[in-house]
Nucleic acid binder design. Structure first.
Lengths: 241, 241
DNA sequence: CGAGCCTTTGAGTTTCCTCAACCTGAGTGG
DNA sequence: CCACTCAGGTTGAGGAAACTCAAAGGCTCG
């Protein structure tokens, strides 16, 4: 199902990738960057709805997103499931499985997506000659912990409208960092997926979008959103309840 | 305020520490274990209510708990605060700050606590000659990510009574792994702190404890809890809502 | 152009929160 | 040693937020 695309002489490499400043190579010297070029030997194409890895799969690699969007999600024994993250180009997924060398969640494409496969073995080998890579990996994992903890506060202490406002701001900032518009974008996920991520029901999400639109904070038509009054949206998040 | 206790010849070391099978040395050979003994040069005593580190403090070390209990908590700009974790002996705190080399949360003692200070510089040096240490660190960080993600499901999709039941089971298992009774223990945290961790108000936590007790699932008197009907408690968590 | 999914909106219900009063136990000082 | 204080905990009543169930409309994709 998944299409693997071998890297050829002509393929773009880490050293020339436009996502460099968001992805693994952050802060590396040109010299280190060139060593990185051997790290990614394959790319994987994941079509919309397909799964890159599943909970419990043996972990052979982690994946840096080249383009597209992934969701990571977790299903409990009793069938309840929750989305734990939406991932944009330049982000690395699979880090949660490094401990047990088994993936600790599922990763599914929300649109046609391509990822760079970073084999764990190669990663270890290269880390030995490239200490900055090791440090960079630690940074990524630590950042993921911090982000999850911010999400814990979001779920634990924010009301529904604050959560949704925080979600829009977060998405806006991340898209903006990737060169897209901060104020106008397409949601790659359904209302139900947003709800799952935010601990809300899809109807609640839909109602809130309508309410935000009515209040003149956003314009929304299907999955196309325009943030009209950014200050107003930020105010929703900050007004402590 | 914090008392630092230098390690002497007579102090217990990693190679002889009874927490070895829960802490950094998990799965290390005797040979590797002895190299570990140089890693911890100081211990720190944190009295009840004192803070080991705060959000934004420069990170010089991470800390393995020797005895006692810590909470890690995060306060947002608007003053809202949430507990992101309770930490028992053998657990390592401070990992969330490794990315930015600044602590990403506050860590406060719930009772008199002693931690082993693992200086980051020493850690890096030793990692070079002790690859299993590096791997172990990755395991710890990755485990923390997975745990946070389980907590995200807890906050995002469980009802109040399920959250509290899950909390009791989790605590019971962790205490049991440390040689304490799985069925009878003392809560080191207040109702308010439990509520903060679980995204509930203290009154809700108190009511639920009373209801659990009334249903014969637990006995509770102040902070002393006895899990009477473990199967019943587990059933509460699993009955999907 | 039809099927199926996604989304919106309404009505009624449940859950948990808020506010408030009161209780309990540990520590303190007269 | 006892009364007092104060933080932590319990319990009740009422209300707000979000959920459930339901119905209908709109898009997308084959």
């Amino acid at each position: 199902m998944l299409t693997t695309i071998p890297i050829t002489e002509m393929s773009p490499r880490c050293s020339t990738c436009s996502l460099g400043q968001l992805c693994l190579p952050v802060g590396m010297s040109q010299q280190d960057l060139e060593k990185m070029d051997t790290l990614v030997q394959d790319r994987v194409r994941v079509r919309k709805g397909e799964t890159l890895y599943r909970l419990g799969d043996p972990l052979t690699a982690v994946y840096a997103i080249r383009f597209g969007t992934l969701k990571t999600h977790l299903t409990m024994e009793d069938g309840r499931s929750q989305i734990t993250g939406f991932h944009l180009p330049g982000e690395v997924v699979g880090l949660d499985g490094l401990g047990e060398m088994q993936h600790a969640s599922d990763a599914t494409a929300l649109e046609d997506t391509e990822v760079c496969m970073v084999r764990f073995g190669d990663l270890q080998t290269l880390s030995n000659v490239l200490p900055s890579l090791q440090h960079q990996f630690m940074r990524l994992m630590s950042k993921e912990i911090s982000q999850d903890q911010v999400m814990l506060i979001t779920l634990g202490s924010m009301r529904a409208e604050e959560r949704l406002a925080a979600f829009l701001i977060n998405l806006s900032e991340r898209l903006s960092a990737r060169g897209y518009s901060a104020s106008e974008f397409v949601l790659r996920m359904s209302r139900e997926e947003i709800g799952s991520y935010l601990g809300l029901k899809l109807e609640t999400v839909s109602r809130l979008f309508s309410r935000f639109a009515e209040a003149g904070l956003i314009q929304i038509r299907q999955r196309h959103v325009k943030l009209v009054d950014m200050a107003g949206i930020k105010q929703i998040v900050n007004k402590s309840c």
